[in-house]
Design a protein around this nucleic acid. Structure first.
Lengths: 335, 335
DNA sequence: GCTATCGATGATTTCGATTACATCAGAGCG
DNA sequence: CGCTCTGATGTAATCGAAATCATCGATAGC
């Protein structure tokens, strides 16, 4: 591969001029510029990335870590991230942590090694090395969180109001006439789950129905949806509505409902969370909370770019709008 | 951030020794090594990636381009890629091309700029710059394809036998007694679609049913599944079975079937392709062709690593096993 | 007509790590 | 005792581009 020296020689100019043709073309005479560009095309020159990066201390890359890339919710957020990043001239380094701390550490080390200019993490844990970095550099640290806002984290983030969204779901179900409601949460270590649970409890209390609530802890997977919903359905005093904290778990819930010969929504109402692309094509079409996934991706990139451009001085926690989308999986409880 | 010089000074050794502690520790005396490690820990040193990369000409990164990351089939393949890459000490640069040539070119340029040691592309197009590279360097070019084998591409690849898989589906449907079968393909420019169509036609001809075949071209999306299946169902001489070239289109097909008050499988049998995680949780559970998605990811990384380690001299086209998974969406045609 | 200024370009240093080569001390051997 | 060899470490060149500073010619202003 041709280097900048080759181009300079071929064009009869210095390397500085060649460099300028790329980074500040207005400083170079039109004639010189085209002479250089000819040489560039002739030799098929592309600036070497490592060399540039070494000199500028920038990589133009954003590292994105995600607990599970095969989860449609995350892959949709990533799509937004990729789009916004690309538009700003950044590319995306993807890290699938598989919910494992060891992998999170690996990616944290990568970031410390400056393999990326910024880090977006979609999980809820921030490895220690990074927490230290945040503690040292404050809100200028180029680390941003998506979806899992927790005040203690001390990084900017973009997310929806999970507590309110969950409360809205409950209010909606109570409004339909349901009194015994089963809730399948995600792991409670994650704010995404604990915030939603807080909203659920608050709404139940407001209705004086807290004692009729059944909580079951899942892990956001389809399988845990089948399992946890199954348990709720098999208890005495079966709930007439199930609220799952993810659409995937709701898919599992549908399966559990069918396995028992019950029908949704006639016997059991079901609400999911996220509004992944598939939610509206399930049978019955799933009532769920729509999250602006791509927008979260865009926003989180914007926050990061602000930090990288030194435009951000204070933490920003952006709350994006959610929307309860009522479809076919909810109805009044059976008489 | 501390540099290797700082560490060397702090430990009272030369930079060469520090470097050796990382890359060839057996050459360094135990006492020296621990002295260096102390300094490393004290200063929180991490080798600068760009500097290393400039010197070694390696990035330890693999660029993976994919037509649509939010497609569960691809995200599952990527998961396999990420896992295998990570295990080999490589990280993954993700490129979502959104089926757009312009983005493919952008990523091709990134690769030419040496931002990654190798390229895995899951689409069917190879940008010109890369095709030129392949033509020049032959089978040692670190470019590998996943899923979309095409002989003319001149790169190694891992994929299933799409032609045979599709033929098996047709044979299975004919075996159930179906005679009028509708097929919803993907874009025919992609070998994945054209190979499957070849298999479909061959099987139909063997049965003498080629004239009763109805072909409709979709684009792998749910929406196109709704649309194309809808058209097939509305034609006179409605098919009794629909074969979609992706599970997503099959989800759309289910919707189209329901919209018309028809029932699957009682009125219409349905077969998908891929066996994405959701296929077995649809209602009815989808009969489909299972592709070893993560394994394709692993294999494609293995092929690439072979090239990078100079172990590969000839092209390798690996065919992985598929499996027809019969679930609830297929049955004999109505009487 | 002379100098200050500016625009265009060149020479050179720099980024931080790796590595070929040099050096040096001590062990082993005749 | 001196020489060679080996193991441990140091010296310095190198990777390729960017950026600072220097240079030079032309232009403008007085």
């Amino acid at each position: 591969m041709a280097t900048i020296q080759d181009v300079a020689r071929d064009a009869g100019v210095s390397t500085a001029t060649v460099s300028r043709v790329f980074s500040a073309p207005e400083l170079v005479l039109e004639a010189t510029r085209s002479k250089v560009m000819e040489a560039v095309n002739r030799l098929g020159y592309e600036p070497n990335f490592a060399a540039r990066s070494l000199r500028t201390l920038r990589t133009e890359k954003i590292l994105v870590t995600v607990p599970d890339i095969s989860n449609p919710f995350f892959s949709q957020v990533i799509r937004g991230v990729e789009e916004a990043a690309m538009a700003a001239g950044y590319s995306v380094l993807l890290g699938d942590t598989r919910h494992e701390e060891a992998r999170e550490e690996q990616y944290a080390a990568m970031f410390r090694r400056k393999e990326a200019d910024g880090l977006i993490f979609l999980g809820h844990r921030l490895p220690n090395v990074l927490a230290d970095m945040v503690a040292a550099k404050g809100p200028r640290t180029p680390i941003v969180n998506g979806c899992e806002f927790r005040p203690g984290l001390a990084v900017s983030s973009a997310h929806i109001d999970n507590e309110r969204a969950a409360a809205e779901v409950m209010t909606y179900l109570y409004g339909l006439g349901h009194t015994r409601i089963g809730v399948v949460t995600g792991p409670l270590a994650s704010p995404i789950s604990s915030d939603r649970l807080t909203g659920v409890l608050a709404a139940a209390q407001r209705q004086g129905r807290a004692s009729a609530l059944r909580i079951s802890v899942g892990d956001f997977s389809i399988e845990s949806g089948v399992r946890q919903t199954g348990e709720l359905l098999d208890e005495p005093g079966r709930p007439t509505a199930i609220f799952c904290f993810s659409d995937e778990m709701a898919m599992g819930a549908l399966e559990a409902i069918r396995q028992r010969g019950l029908r949704c929504p006639d016997d059991i109402s079901l609400v999911g969370f996220d509004d992944i692309r598939f939610a509206q094509y399930l049978n019955p079409k799933l009532t769920t909370v729509s999250q602006p996934m791509e927008q979260i991706g865009h926003e989180v990139v914007r926050l990061l770019l602000d930090i990288l451009a030194d435009r951000a001085s204070a933490l920003q926690n952006v709350t994006l709008p959610h929307r309860l989308v009522v479809r076919e999986s909810t109805a009044p409880p059976p008489a």
